[in-house]
Write a protein that binds this DNA or RNA. Structure first.
Length: 442
RNA sequence: CGGGGUAUAGCGCAGCCUGGUAGCGCAUCUGCUUUGGGAGCAGAGGGUCGCAGGUUCAAAUCCUGCUGCCCCGACCA
């Protein structure tokens, strides 16, 4: 991709509405544009990152045995009357009336709908366990949207729903999602800490929020530092096996949000190991038993011939929110510092002198080689000054910059700069290509 | 939903108090110079001054109402 033809409306000045750093940087880097309060258009650069995050979430859901479907954004009110939530949900739900005066709504979540899909087709315990998920836009009419995409009204969420015969098998479904989440967030360069969350009327120990630490986080969190160093389950994890030892490892060290904080238990953690910080919730997993299956009559016949309501859980990831969360965790004074796994492009080639035949040719060759190796490349071929190019490239935060100018080429070298460390290496073009492919291919 | 701000060019702002027909910086366009960390000079284009009423010879400016957006709090992936 050539920057001269790419729609990337960079802002030099910070729009005044942006308070927190991720919001500022997303606007300045031309990733999003606010259309109205809490509702954003995703510009090409922002969309690229959104898609990469989505894909990681998808891969890990699939790996854990969940199956993707896609449910609509607009739902009929009647479905929500079955669970009683049409009245209970309140003003956060965007209600719509169609031309036939039928009551509709823009979905804030999909428990009712997925339960409807399930009950229409699944009648036997033999078809369990089942986990269905989708990645779809949601709308919650927040009283006060803020922090850019971190708390928008329209947002992209992955929500999975598990169906099991009883509570014990539901626990296995829960554990699979727990492990999938550990892997998902780690792949995005985030340290997500599972914290026990309020289970409401259901009770029990099966609800966790996944929190990443960031100074601009919305809630205060307390944890034992030991949890930060726990190993992330590998790609080879067998999701059909008993995962409870992993869950035990991850739920033993103290970790709680302020709502669930137990000061006495926290005091028991050695002082040097105690940490209190601010956090952003990026995922939430929840077992809710028969809360929907019972009123909505989603039953299966068990091995004993008796009909029982299925035990369900739901598992959310705030996909669009993750962009903000990742930037909060990965930025510096000059701009964004994308982890390679979610970066909009892997490499930015800076052509210091567009129009110079040798420089243009070198850039084209480097672009071709890197692209052929499967990397996403953005070539800055804009006729502007070096300083402006460096500033732009630092702002958009691509993991590596490949700096190509006539001065270096005369000596047969180009420069590779790692965005995160600022480290620069002067190499031959071929060495540079090899180095980048080595660092970035996965 | 309570409290507080704010609305003037794509972005950031001044002008409003004391009414006289709109300005600055950045960005954009043209030309020349410049060229390894957000260049300089010269010129140009771009505005229903949030909307609707009212006062006045005259309203961005004064008055009334409405709306959008932002911030603080209560609530959420």
């Amino acid at each position: 991709m050539h920057l001269s033809r790419y729609f990337l409306p960079i802002l030099k000045e910070t729009p005044k509405e942006a308070e927190i750093v991720s919001h500022r940087l997303m606007l300045r880097a031309g990733m999003i544009r606010q259309e109205t309060a809490g509702i954003y258009a995703w510009l090409p650069m922002g969309l690229r990152v959104l898609r990469k995050i989505e894909q990681i979430v998808r891969e890990e859901q699939n790996r854990a045995g969940a199956q993707e479907l896609l449910m609509p954004t607009v739902q009929p009110a009647d479905l929500w009357r079955e669970s009683g939530r049409y009245d209970a949900y309140g003003k956060e739900m965007l209600r719509i009336t169609d031309r036939h005066e039928r009551e509709m709504l823009f979905g804030p979540t999909n428990e009712e709908m997925v339960t409807d899909i399930f009950r229409a087709s699944v009648k036997s315990y033999r078809d369990l366990p089942l986990n269905l998920y989708h990645i779809q836009w949601k709308f919650r009419d927040e009283v006060r949207p803020r922090f850019g995409v971190m708390r928008g009204r329209e947002f992209l969420m992955k929500d999975a729903y598990s169906f099991d015969l009883d509570k014990e098998s539901a626990r296995h479904a829960y554990n699979r999602m727990f492990v999938a989440y550990l892997r998902t967030f780690a792949r995005m360069g985030l340290k997500a800490i599972p914290m026990r969350a309020d289970t409401g009327p259901i009770g029990g120990d099966m609800s966790h929020e996944f929190i990443i630490l960031a100074s601009t986080g919305e809630s205060e969190v307390f944890c034992d530092k030991a949890i930060l160093d726990l190993p992330i389950p590998g790609e080879d994890t067998d999701f059909t096996a008993d995962l409870s030892p992993v869950i035990t490892d991850w739920t033993t060290p103290y970790a709680a949000t302020d709502e669930m904080h137990d000061a006495a238990a926290f005091e028991a953690v050695p002082e040097a190991e105690r940490m209190s910080a601010r956090g952003i919730e990026v995922g939430h997993i929840f077992y809710f038993g028969t809360k929907y299956s019972e009123p909505m009559n989603a039953k299966v016949t068990g091995p004993d011939g008796a009909e029982v309501p299925v035990h369900m859980g739901s598992y959310g990831v705030g996909v669009s929110r993750l962009l903000g969360a990742i930037i909060e965790a990965h930025h510096d004074d000059d701009g964004i510092v994308w982890p390679a796994s979610v970066a909009p492009f892997h490499v930015g080639i800076i052509n210091l002198k567009p129009g110079d035949a040798a420089t243009d040719a070198a850039c084209a060759d480097l672009d071709a080689q890197l692209t052929k190796a499967g990397l996403d490349v953005l070539v800055d071929d804009v006729d502007s000054r070096a300083g402006a190019k460096f500033a732009t490239m630092d702002l958009i935060g691509l993991p590596y910059q490949l700096i190509v100018g006539p001065r270096g080429l005369k000596d047969g070298v180009v420069e590779v700069k790692a965005r995160a460390s600022g480290e620069r290496a002067t190499l031959s073009p071929q060495e540079a290509v090899n180095r980048l492919i080595g660092e970035l291919s996965s």
